[in-house]
Amino acid sequence: MVARHGAAATRAAAWFGAGPDADDVVQEAFVKAWQALDRFRDGAPFRPWLVRIVANQTRNTVRGRGRRDALALRALDLRDGPDPLLDVVAAERQRRLADALATLRRPERDVVVCRWLLGLSESETATALGIPAGTAKSRASRALARLRTVLTDLEETHDRA
């Protein structure tokens, strides 16, 4: 279970805001998943169920430490190769994406994380977040519109500098 889903769970924890506690969140989420395995519906997709546990554990951890929504960039690797210039460009892209994601409200950011950063389908996203499919779809639409605006503004600001 850990070998197959560990990397995705770590990415999820990081994008949901676990920050430096991502590894601890994932470890605790796997323990909870193992303990709740008897309640897992036979035939249901495992990954959305695990992502939901990771999301809930992340919220508990962040709430418990009193910090708000710290995005961890270490789980996202946009680097295209060993070229130092590409590394600089990728790091800048990461920063801009993190800045843009930070402007979203948590429910919208959670949908973006599930759909596009973790690659879950619309129905898997709804299952992972415990919301109706229509809600996931509308949140995704609002989030993408807001991200477009924010990223365009960031790009224009960068071009003027």
Rank of each mutant, 00 (worst) to 15 (best):
residue 123 S to P: 03
residue 17 G to R: 05
residue 118 L to V: 00
residue 150 V to D: 12
residue 34 W to S: 13
residue 18 A to E: 02
residue 108 E to R: 07
residue 67 R to P: 01
residue 4 R to N: 13
residue 129 L to N: 09
residue 81 G to A: 01
residue 104 L to Q: 06
residue 84 P to M: 05
residue 67 R to Y: 02
residue 42 D to I: 01
residue 63 R to V: 12
residue 56 N to M: 07
residue 81 G to Q: 13
residue 15 W to I: 07
residue 160 R to S: 13
residue 35 Q to W: 13
residue 56 N to K: 08
residue 151 L to F: 06
residue 80 D to I: 13
residue 93 R to A: 15
residue 159 D to H: 08
residue 10 T to H: 06
residue 125 T to K: 10
residue 156 E to S: 09
residue 116 W to S: 04
residue 36 A to T: 09
residue 84 P to I: 09
residue 148 R to G: 08
residue 10 T to P: 04
residue 133 A to Y: 11
residue 121 S to L: 05
residue 118 L to H: 06
residue 119 G to Q: 00
residue 152 T to V: 03
residue 130 G to W: 12
residue 85 L to K: 10
residue 10 T to A: 14
residue 23 D to H: 13
residue 24 D to W: 00
residue 158 H to T: 10
residue 100 A to P: 01
residue 18 A to Y: 01
residue 33 A to W: 03
residue 60 N to P: 05
residue 154 L to Q: 15
residue 14 A to N: 01
residue 59 R to K: 13
residue 146 R to D: 02
residue 104 L to W: 10
residue 159 D to T: 12
residue 121 S to P: 07
residue 148 R to Y: 08
residue 159 D to C: 08
residue 67 R to H: 04
residue 108 E to T: 02
residue 127 T to C: 05
residue 97 L to W: 08
residue 7 A to P: 03
residue 24 D to Q: 09
residue 99 D to E: 15
residue 135 T to R: 15
residue 159 D to M: 12
residue 75 A to M: 10
residue 27 Q to V: 07
residue 111 V to A: 08
residue 70 A to M: 07
residue 49 W to Y: 08
residue 102 A to I: 05
residue 37 L to Q: 01
residue 150 V to R: 15
residue 37 L to S: 03
residue 121 S to G: 10
residue 7 A to C: 06
residue 129 L to A: 03
residue 115 R to C: 12
residue 59 R to M: 00
residue 127 T to K: 13
residue 115 R to P: 11
residue 104 L to F: 07
residue 43 G to S: 15
residue 151 L to S: 08
residue 17 G to D: 05
residue 22 A to W: 11
residue 103 T to P: 04
residue 29 A to G: 04
residue 119 G to P: 15
residue 141 S to H: 15
residue 8 A to S: 00
residue 31 V to S: 01
residue 57 Q to Y: 00
residue 44 A to Y: 05
residue 113 V to S: 01
residue 40 F to H: 14
residue 120 L to Y: 03
residue 41 R to E: 14
residue 73 L to D: 15
residue 30 F to V: 11
residue 152 T to R: 02
residue 14 A to R: 10
residue 25 V to G: 08
residue 83 D to Y: 01
residue 63 R to L: 15
residue 153 D to F: 04
residue 141 S to A: 14
residue 63 R to K: 10
residue 9 A to H: 06
residue 109 R to L: 02
residue 124 E to Q: 11
residue 51 V to C: 08
residue 112 V to T: 06
residue 26 V to L: 12
residue 123 S to W: 07
residue 20 P to T: 09
residue 84 P to A: 11
residue 120 L to G: 05
residue 139 R to L: 15
residue 85 L to G: 11
residue 23 D to Y: 04
residue 28 E to Y: 07
residue 19 G to T: 00
residue 55 A to F: 09
residue 66 G to Q: 09
residue 144 L to Y: 00
residue 126 A to V: 01
residue 2 V to E: 10
